[in-house]
């Protein structure tokens, strides 16, 4: 085999008819432009959050209190560490360390899956009825009366009067009446599920994208002269991290 054929067999992105350096530069620029559209998508959702926050700050604070800061903080740390490992994997392939790159990419994918697992537990908790002290519902006598008629209220072992309610009540979305609205505003939970849902979808896409990059990496397609897919996959993963950095304080810490 001549040297020329051996070089041709090496993957370098030049199959599009462009030199790899150009593909590398254009891919990054194009991907940043795509990330800009992603930022604008989330900007709209954050604007919705801001507008409804100003309409009902007290409701938002009471609602945020229902979220687990522990889960949120754990997911923040998972995403920050995975962001670091994916950035490190790019440094590894720049130095030609394919094995380290593969390990770090696999670790990052693992972090993404753990994040989704955490979200599953959080979501299922918010979907089910929780026990709430009847005192907390004092501001909504109509709701308390309804719950009592439905037999949802009882005295627990600690001697407190509690009612079983669903934190996220679809029926109350958009309700502006503080008397009929539950102690925790449903608009907050609508935004919570929408924002974290769209963000979770990005995690799923990111995990799929990095898995594709990892498969290519295991096949030995990357080397210091061609690692554009690793770099671009990494940029997408960092975006997911960027969004979460804002979501965490706004959803979990406004109580």
């Amino acid at each position: 085999m001549s040297v020329a054929t051996a070089v041709k067999k090496l993957h370098d992105g030049s199959k599009w008819g462009n030199p790899p350096e150009l593909v590398y530069d254009m891919s990054r620029m194009g991907f940043w432009l795509f990330l800009a559209t992603e930022l604008l998508l989330f900007a709209v959702l954050f604007t919705a959050y801001a507008v409804y926050y100003f309409h009902d700050p007290a409701g938002f604070h009471a609602s945020a209190h229902e979220l687990s800061v522990g889960f949120g903080a754990a997911n923040t740390i998972i995403l920050l560490v995975s962001s670091f490992t994916v950035a490190w994997s790019i440094e590894a392939i720049k130095q030609g360390n394919i094995r380290l790159m593969n390990i770090l990419l696999a670790f990052t994918i693992g972090c993404g899956l753990v994040f989704l697992g955490n979200k599953y537990f959080e979501y299922s908790h918010k979907m089910h009825e929780v026990e709430l002290e009847a005192v907390a519902l004092a501001k909504s006598p109509a709701l308390l009366k309804d719950l009592k008629e439905q037999g949802k209220c009882f005295t627990n072992t600690a001697g407190q009067e509690v009612c079983r309610v669903i934190p996220f009540n679809v029926a109350n979305i958009g309700s502006g009446d503080p008397l009929t609205k539950p102690a925790f505003a449903s608009m907050f939970f609508f935004l919570y599920f929408f924002l974290t849902g769209v963000h979770g979808l990005h995690i799923v896409v990111g995990v799929a994208l990095l898995s594709w990059v990892l498969i290519k990496g295991l096949r030995g397609e990357f080397h210091p002269g061609w690692y554009t897919p690793v770099e671009v996959g990494g940029l997408y993963w960092h975006l997911v991290d960027l969004i979460w950095i804002y979501l965490f304080p706004l959803l979990y810490l406004v109580s």
Binding site: V86, I90, G234, H238, D241
Partner: peptide, 10 residues
Amino acid sequence: VSLVMLFFMH
């Protein structure tokens, strides 16, 4: 976010 963009995102 600035730190992530400057260093992790190069």
